[in-house]
Computed example of a mutant assay.
Amino acid sequence: MIQSTGTIADVLKHKGHQVWSVSPDVTVFEAIQKLAEKNVGALLVMDGDRLVGIFSERDYTRKVALRGRSSKETKVREILSERVICATPQHSVEDGLRLMTEHRIRHLPVVENHKVVGIVSIGDLVNWVINQQSQTIKQLESYITGGYPS
Score class of each variant (00 low, 15 high):
Thr27Phe: 09
Phe29Asp: 15
Lys13Gln: 13
Leu43Ser: 10
Glu82Leu: 00
Thr88Pro: 01
Ala31His: 09
Asn113Pro: 02
Phe55Asn: 08
Ala31Met: 05
Leu80Asp: 06
Gly96Ala: 01
Ser81Ile: 03
Ser56Asp: 09
Gly146Thr: 04
Ile8Gln: 06
Glu37Asn: 05
Arg67Gly: 01
Ile137Pro: 03
Leu80Thr: 05
Ser142Phe: 01
Thr145Val: 04
His91Gly: 00
Gln133Leu: 11
Val126Gly: 02
Val111His: 06
Leu66Ile: 09
Pro24Glu: 11
Asp10Met: 08
Asp59Gly: 12
Val11Asp: 11
Arg98Leu: 03
Leu108Cys: 01
Trp128Lys: 08
Gln33Asp: 12
Val28Met: 06
Ile54Gln: 15
Thr145Ala: 14
Ser56Cys: 05
Val84Phe: 08
His107Asp: 06
Arg106Asp: 07
Pro24Ser: 07
Gly123Cys: 06
Asp124Leu: 04
Thr61Ala: 06
Met100Arg: 03
Thr74Trp: 11
Asn113Met: 02
Lys15Tyr: 03
Leu140Trp: 13
His17Cys: 01
Val76Arg: 13
Gln133Val: 07
Cys86Ala: 04
Asp124Tyr: 03
Tyr143Lys: 14
Arg77Gln: 13
Ile85Gln: 05
Thr27Val: 09
Ser4Asp: 15
Gly68Asp: 09
Gly6Met: 10
Thr5Pro: 00
Ile85Thr: 10
Ile105Glu: 10
Asn39Gly: 03
Val19Phe: 15
Val40His: 10
Gly146Ala: 05
Lys38Val: 00
Gly16Met: 05
Gly6Pro: 12
Trp20Glu: 15
Asp47Gly: 04
Val117Lys: 07
Arg58Leu: 03
Gly41Trp: 06
Gly41Gln: 12
Glu73Trp: 07
Ser23Lys: 05
Leu35Gln: 10
Val111Gly: 02
His14Ile: 01
His17Leu: 03
Val19Thr: 14
Gly6Asp: 07
Phe29Arg: 15
Leu97Arg: 02
Leu140Glu: 13
Gly16Lys: 07
Ala87Leu: 03
Val45Ala: 04
His91Trp: 02
Val76Trp: 12
Pro89Arg: 07
Leu97Gly: 00
Trp20Tyr: 15
Thr74Ala: 04
Val28Lys: 10
Thr61Leu: 14
Arg98Lys: 12
Glu37Met: 01
Val110Asp: 11
Asp95Val: 00
Trp128Phe: 04
Glu30Tyr: 01
Tyr143Cys: 08
Arg69Met: 11
Val22Ser: 07
Ile105Thr: 07
Asn113Ser: 09
Ser71Pro: 15
Leu51Ile: 06
Met46Arg: 10
Glu102Trp: 00
Ser81Thr: 15
Gln133Asp: 03
Arg50His: 12
Ser23Gln: 06
Gln132Cys: 02
Ala31Arg: 08
Lys72Pro: 01
Arg62Pro: 07
His91Glu: 06
Tyr143Trp: 15
Ser21Thr: 12
Ser56Ala: 05
Ala9Asp: 15
Ala36His: 07
Ala31Ser: 08
Lys15Asp: 03
Asp10Ala: 12
Val45Trp: 08
Asn127Val: 00
Ile8Ala: 04
Tyr148Phe: 11
Val120Ile: 13
Gly6Ser: 10
Ser71Gln: 13
Asn127Trp: 01
Phe55Lys: 11
Val129Gly: 01
Leu12Met: 08
Ser4Glu: 15
Val52Gln: 13
Pro89Met: 04
Arg50Lys: 15
Ala36Lys: 14
Val40Phe: 13
His91Lys: 03
Gly48Phe: 09
Asp10Ile: 03
Ile85Leu: 09
